[in-house]
Design a protein around this nucleic acid. Structure first.
Ligand SMILES: [Mn+2]
Ligand SMILES: [Mn+2]
Ligand SMILES: [Zn+2]
Ligand SMILES: [Zn+2]
Lengths: 132, 132
DNA sequence: ACACTTTTTTAGAATCATTATAAACTACAT
DNA sequence: ATGTAGTTTATAATGATTCTAAAAAAGTGT
């Protein structure tokens, strides 16, 4: 199995459920953004057996902790995740409530001039809100 | 009263509760970031009568719609608001779970090269996550 | 002041994404 | 095969937010 190794190396047992969720998340041409609800529907469509909602939450959080998923800060009642874990930025279409990737090349260099004592920059993310 | 005019001009009746919330939000040296829960505690401390939680939610949303408050996109179970409605960016101290304003002068010019057909840019916000 | 309409406040209920619980199940080492 | 820790699951609990509908307050006209 394609993801068995990856999971083992992360200290996660390669269970049937996790492997199936890996397929849904990572066996795609393109990366994508999703909420837990959207992922849950996607799994139902692509997989024959049922995976409980609790397991989906558990797995998404486990994968996020391991760096295989990223949470996107956005004002919504649902949490958004991203299978694209490279540094990149986002458009947010307010009407459609959809995220669009902004490649790093799509944004000029970002210069953060201020420093905070004793703190390091972990990430720099731009959110560009779009209206009609 | 200081805020009566401002509320009337916005089509909001200057009620006792709204005027008191205005004082808590806007009668300060510096702007600040808050969650509804934090604001609720602040109101309890600063004013003698009780304002119901529903009114605090209603008022904050009304003020946000009128542009007197801004919501800050951040990954938290609580919504963060900002009394600083000028364009600006944020540090987010992951340990303390606190936002810190980044003045526009603290950030070099931002160049968004990509365009989306039929969409206008409404805002561009940077979130800089800080770790130890 | 009074009558009338519209907006606002409020306590409490409802919603709903998320997290916790704890029992059954599974992976894996010995 | 047995033991142990990790995982899944149905279900309950949590908690921020929104809804409801009745009472109160604000605004308008007379
Ligand atoms: Mn959320
Ligand atoms: Mn929220
Ligand atoms: Zn993305
Ligand atoms: Zn701010």
């Amino acid at each position: 199995m394609k993801y068995t190794e990856k999971l083992r190396n992360s200290g996660l047992r390669p269970t049937k459920q996790r492997l199936q969720i890996c397929e849904v998340l990572f066996d795609t041409e393109k990366t994508f953004h999703f909420t837990i609800n959207e992922l849950s529907l996607k799994i139902k469509k692509q997989i024959d057996n049922k995976i409980s909602l609790a397991t989906i939450y558990n797995t998404v959080h486990a994968f996020e902790k391991k760096g295989y998923l990223k949470q996107i800060p956005i004002n919504s009642n649902e949490t958004y995740f991203d299978t694209n874990v490279c540094d990149h930025h986002h458009f947010y279409d307010l009407k459609k409530e959809k995220l669009i990737d902004l490649e790093n090349a799509d944004v000029g260099p970002i210069d953060i001039k201020r420093k905070i004592d004793g703190k390091k920059i972990k990430s720099v993310e731009i959110l560009v809100k779009l209206e009609d």
